[in-house]
């Protein structure tokens, strides 16, 4: 279980204080898939970095399975938005996936198996020896996902991972993430600004206000577990949920402007 309790983050520089996150509390059940949406610039990335232990919060705590997060915890993986910068350009695809396993001290044969499986799972079984920059943006993000899969995390955080890929690739990658989640039984927190994506992917959608950020609404997505791009997005219930999230985000934007 991932618990965020009274989280606040204030950036102070050159005498100016910017309150990025006001007061955030929510829980993510072990093995669940939660999407976080909010208007742009609402501190989503800050929240995710606090959860990952990459950024110390100003107030409040993040707890993972009962122990407080003070630095990057074990068994947690992150897929960053900037795929072009999160892969090591000097390592081949397979070595990029392999490096965290080497750091974890996994033996050679096991590493090989995990890397092969992960790359097969994301449909890049034939790209072992390519360099990341020889691949398209979507394929690079697949490599980053493969790296996370091979690492076998208990918690996977994704920070707007598909913001920079084209629409068709994006649909494929969304289905890939769903299948990875179902197969691995990992706890998945997915940050996005795309309302459709959030509703399509998650079991729950947490909507945030503009900064200083708070939880605007925590919505359970009661769509069937088996989802696909055509029928799920055609489902009247999908449209209804999507409308609700949309209205909430619009409200948050207006309130943000009024302040």
């Amino acid at each position: 279980m991932l618990t965020v309790d009274g989280l606040g983050k204030v950036y102070a520089s050159h005498g100016r204080r910017v309150e990025a996150i006001g007061d955030l509390s929510f829980e993510v059940e072990t093995g669940s898939f939660v999407c976080i949406v909010g208007p742009s610039g609402c501190g989503k990335t800050t929240l995710l970095r606090c959860c990952a232990g990459l950024l110390p919060p100003t107030s409040g705590t993040v707890t993972l399975s009962g122990s407080p997060v003070t630095g990057p915890p074990e068994g947690l993986a992150v897929v960053f938005q900037e795929y072009g910068r999160s892969l090591f350009p000097w390592l081949r695809v397979a070595d990029n996936v392999d490096l965290p396993l080497r750091a974890a001290g996994v033996d050679r044969a096991e590493r090989r198996r995990l890397v092969d499986e992960a790359l097969d799972a994301v449909g890049l079984g034939d790209a072992h020896r390519a360099y990341p920059w020889q691949l398209s943006g979507g394929m690079q993000q697949r490599v980053a996902i493969a790296r996370a899969i091979a690492y076998q995390p208990r918690v996977l955080l994704m920070d707007e991972p598909f913001a920079a890929v084209d629409a068709q690739t994006r649909a494929d990658l969304e289905d890939l993430v769903r299948s990875v989640w179902q197969r691995l039984g990992v706890t998945l927190v997915f940050v996005t600004h795309d309302i459709d994506e959030a509703v399509y992917l998650g079991q729950r959608v947490i909507m945030l206000t503009s900064s200083p950020t708070r939880v605007a609404e925590d919505l359970t997505i009661d769509l069937p577990d088996e989802r696909d791009q055509l029928t799920t997005r055609g489902d009247p219930r999908f449209t209804e949920l999507r409308g609700r999230v949309y209205a909430q985000i619009q409200k948050a934007k207006l309130e943000g402007k009024a302040r």
Binding site: A52, G53, L54, P72, R85, P100, A103, R147, Y151
Partner: peptide, 12 residues
């Protein structure tokens, strides 16, 4: 910075 973060999360 992103690579630095990557190393930190994957405990490299």
């Amino acid at each position: 910075g992103v690579l630095e973060d990557t190393c930190r999360t994957y405990r490299i």
